[in-house]
Structure formats: C-alpha cells, structure tokens
C-alpha cells in the first residue's frame, strides 16, 4: 500500500525549504485560495502562516526554538507527543478534564490538549522533560519520589507540572489549599495524599521552584 508520506507530520521540526516548496505548489493549485492566506504567505514573520492543510509556526520548547509546519488541527499536546517526541506530557482524556497534559505556557500551567499549537506561535512552553536541570531533578520531582507521590505514573508529569505552578502561584499554603488548587489533576491510583505531602514539603523547605 502506498502512503502519502508528505501528509505525515515531520519528526524533524526544521524543514523550511520543503515547507515553502509545498506551499507554493499548493497555492498554484488552489484557484479559490483566500486572499488573507495569500497575503499572509508573503509575510512569514507576522505570525503563523498557512492554510487549512499546513501552518508554519515557531515555539520555544524547553528553551529551544522549534520551527514546525503542522496540520492546524494539531493541539499543542499532539505536537509535543507526536512531532517532537516529548511523550512525557500525557493524553488522558483529550478534553481538559484530567490534567495529565499540563505544561507551562509562558510560565502558566495550561492544558495542552485544549489549545491548538498554532495559537501558541511564539510562546515559551515548558514540559516535564524541561523541568529538571540536566541530570539534576527539580526539587518537586525529588519530593514525588521521596513521598511516593505516584503509582502507575501516567498522571505524574501533569501532577508535577501543576504542583510546581501551584507553589509558584502561592497556592501551597496549607494541605487544604493544595488539595483545592491541585484538583484539576486526576489520579486514578489515588496517590493524592502523597502528592500533597510532596508539594507541602517543597514549599516548606523554600527551595527555588
């Protein structure tokens, strides 16, 4: 069976030449191309550029600028997992109801399943893979291990990212506050009390998060 490999989103993000080649072919073949798209295609620095098949955009992920061309329907979550190989961010429900896909966008905890990647053009995204300082784990990652704030591990990256944000936001003042502000992160194994302990300890010890 033949497959259209061009339709597969590229694993390698930098592929400007190929993109433009394809764009120009696409435009040439599209008699009904909307005017704004054609104009946009000529001004690539203004924002994400493209049409309903592909858009080109750039994101800074874990400190590294990545230029990608993707199907505009791709969520930030799917771009991270499918195109960038950053599978630490999890897809639990895909509807913003479980928190497993939590990442930081421009410093705020965000559900990556509920935002189209194209909307995040120019944003700075931090995923679980970018939280630690090389081999040195983030204090909350250490605390999760120490307090066993996990079992199956699937919700864990989201819990950690959310927990870090919870501390930074100033919502880790008490166990009750942590529970309320962490309630957007579901854990079916039931590691909640240990997660709360981990967050409170990091907050109490005052390590830089």
């Amino acid at each position: 069976m033949d497959i259209d490999h061009d339709a597969i989103p590229p694993d390698v993000p930098d592929e400007d030449r190929r993109f433009f080649l394809k764009q120009s072919m696409f435009i040439a073949g599209l008699s009904m191309a909307p005017v704004d798209f054609l104009q946009a295609a000529l001004a690539p620095d203004d924002g994400p550029v493209g049409n309903a098949v592909k858009v080109k955009l750039s994101l800074t992920v874990n400190g590294k600028r990545r230029r990608i061309s993707i199907d505009p329907r791709m969520t930030l979550l799917d771009v991270l997992r499918e195109n960038m190989g950053l599978t630490g961010t999890k897809k639990g429900c895909d509807f913003g109801q479980c928190g497993a896909c939590t990442v930081h966008v421009d410093g705020r905890r965000t559900l990556s399943c509920l935002t189209f990647a194209v909307m995040q053009h120019g944003s700075k995204v931090t995923t679980i893979e970018g939280l630690s300082d090389g081999e040195k784990l983030h204090p909350l990652q250490e605390a999760f291990i120490k307090h066993d704030g996990l079992q199956c591990g699937y919700c864990t990256p989201g819990q950690v990212m959310s927990g870090v944000a919870c501390i930074r936001e100033g919502h880790a003042g008490s166990a009750a506050e942590v529970r309320e502000y962490m309630s957007g992160n579901l854990c079916r194994c039931g590691a909640y009390p240990n997660i709360v302990d981990a967050i409170l300890e990091v907050k109490k010890e005052g390590a830089k998060v």
Binding site: L86, T87, G88, T89, T127, I128, E129, L131, S132, L137, Q141, F144, I145, K146, D148, L150, G153, T156, P157, V160
Partner: peptide, 14 residues
C-alpha cells in the same frame, strides 16, 4: 523508593 520513580517523574517512562 520506587525503582522507576525517576523515569516516571521525568516523563521518560514509555
């Protein structure tokens, strides 16, 4: 401590 804890908290568990 959980032997795969580090893999799970860093997102490298596959």
């Amino acid at each position: 401590s959980r032997v795969d804890g580090a893999a799970k908290v860093t997102g490298t568990a596959t």
